[in-house]
Structure formats: C-alpha cells, structure tokens
C-alpha cells in the first residue's frame, strides 16, 4: 500500500470542490488514459479582474489523483489567472505534504489541467507535448522517457553518465539493469541509423564500473569517516547540477547529519534525496546508517 501523507488521505476521503460547477467559464480536460487518470477542472472567472471566483473538479483516478485535484481547486481559488499559472506541480505536491515518487504524475496532471483551463478561457489551443514513461529510478523519481531523451540528446553510453545527467541510478542502484536496457536500445538505433559518412558503431554500453563491494572487514573510525566523506563527495556534482549541495555537519554513531543547500533544501524531493544518499552510504559502509537533516541534531530520535 502507498505511503500517503495524512494530507493526501484527508483530501481523498473528503475531497473539496468535487462535482460540476455552475457558471463555469474555463474548463480544462486532461488525462493519461493508460495510467488511468483523467481530470476535468472547472473555473468560474470574473471577466473584469480575471480572478478565479470558484473552482471544482471531476476526476477519474486513484487516491492521489483525487487528492491532487482537490488540493489544486483549493490553491487557485481567489487567485488571478496569471497568479494561478505560477502554481507548479511541485507546489501541489508540497501542499499535500508530498506524494510518493510513483504518484508525482498526479500533480503534473493537476498543473496541466490548470494550463488547459486557462487556455480554454482565453480561447487558445493547449497542446501538451510531454509524454510519460514507466518509472525507472524510484530513489529520484526518473522515468524512462526522460532517460531516453537525455541519452539520445547527449549521446550517453554508460549508466554512470546517466546518473550524472538525470540522477537516475545514483541511489540504490537496483535500476541499473533498466538503464542499461535503455542505453542498449538507443545504441542499437544509433547503429542502424543510416549515417553516410561513418559506419562506425558505438560499442554497446557496459555496466558502470562495478561499485566497490561492501567492505567485510570492520573499518577503523578514521577509515569510516573518510568513506562517508568520499561517498558524499561523489554525489555532490549531481546535486550541484540541480543548483543544490550537501555538507556533512556531524557523524554521531549511526546518525549522519547533513545540510542540504540551495535547490535541494526544503524541496519536496529533500526526503527522497536523503533516502537515495543514505542507501548509497549504507552500501558503501556495509552497515546501517541514518542520514538526517542537521536541523535534527540534538533532538531525541523516536
């Protein structure tokens, strides 16, 4: 069963603004039939001020789709259309105290419905170009379509490169087989594409250099600290690419306290970023450790 936040549950069990809206003058219908979600967002817009007087929704979808729709209507009521358009899918997820990575697409659907409704009001055509694939990396919520696009656009050939570009595979590493399959598929296309000037094919991707096996011997305290530092250092470039950063503040037994900075801080993915890095540390150290925000330093842990 999904680990839904209390807020998600609350909005699912008691959805706000569900049903048809009398006098709606902006309607956005979006969905993803395969995924089984579809949403109609209805807005009543005051023509003079372009302010959203009322909002409602109808949703065919799972618990988080209904909760995201409910949250969205609450968030946009009272805003002007331009203000409403600044609401991102991340904002919807944050409003609900987060969504499981597999369910982030529900918040994306909310954001799209909003754009579609505004376009409908303004008499514009709304076309969505973004396609969604199966979730490959669960640590960092990266799907197959994104990985494939990035691999193709940048001519990537190794899992390591994919992790550097997209973060996918940078956590628990269990999706490396899936990433290798995508690399092989794109490499195969490249090989068969009729390029006149060169017949040289890129070699099939090889697995990223096997991660150093978990040490079996006990590390000395000094070695252990070094290992923690090295592991975190190796992850930093990935975070920095997203305008974030990480810093170790304190190591206290099994608890490692860190500061997440920049874009990482307070972002919805903070928890899942910490989780991903923690998984890496556990593997590298061969022992269980807990990665915690520095703000929890000194607080008793339950």
């Amino acid at each position: 069963m999904w680990d839904y936040s209390d807020k998600v549950r609350e909005h699912f069990f008691n959805p706000r603004n569900a049903g048809l809206l009398d006098g709606a003058n902006a309607v956005g219908d979006v969905g993803s039939i395969k995924c089984g979600d579809a949403l109609r967002l209805m807005l009543k817009v005051d023509p003079a001020s372009e302010r959203i007087l009322d909002a409602s929704f109808q949703t065919f979808g799972c618990g988080s789709a209904i909760a995201s729709s409910s949250a969205l209507t609450e968030m946009v009521k009272g805003k002007t259309l331009d203000e409403a358009l600044t609401v991102s899918n991340q904002d919807i997820a944050d409003f609900l105290d987060g969504l499981p990575p597999e369910k982030m697409h529900c918040s994306v659907m909310g954001r799209e419905a909003l754009q579609a409704a505004v376009a409908n009001y303004r008499g514009e055509a709304w076309q969505d170009a973004h396609a969604e694939g199966a979730l490959v990396c669960k640590c960092f919520a990266v799907d197959s379509v994104l990985i494939e696009d990035v691999v193709r656009a940048n001519g990537l050939t190794t899992v390591e490169q994919v992790s550097n570009y997209t973060k996918a595979g940078g956590g628990c590493a269990s999706c490396h087989e899936g990433i290798e399959e995508i690399l092989a598929k794109v490499a195969a296309e490249r090989c068969t594409a009729p390029t006149a000037e060169t017949k040289r094919c890129e070699p099939a991707p090889v697995a990223a250099s096997a991660a150093s096996p978990a040490p079996t011997a006990r590390l000395t305290n000094f070695q252990r600290m070094r290992k923690i530092e090295e592991t975190v250092e190796s992850i930093r470039p990935m975070l920095q690419r997203d305008h974030g950063d990480i810093e170790i503040v304190e190591v206290d037994g099994k608890n490692i306290y860190v500061n997440l900075k920049g874009a990482c801080q307070g972002c919805m993915l903070e928890a899942s970023t910490l989780n991903g890095i923690q998984t890496r540390l556990v593997e590298e150290l061969g022992e269980f450790v807990r990665l915690l925000p520095a703000s929890m330093l000194g607080r008793a842990l339950s």
Binding site: S32, C35, C62, S64, E132, G133, A134
Partner: peptide, 11 residues
Amino acid sequence: GSACTSGSLEP
C-alpha cells in the same frame, strides 16, 4: 487490476 495499485503505469 488498476495501474495505480501496481506502481506501473499500465492496467
């Protein structure tokens, strides 16, 4: 048999 209960995108 819904997609959402399996974590995949397909029913």
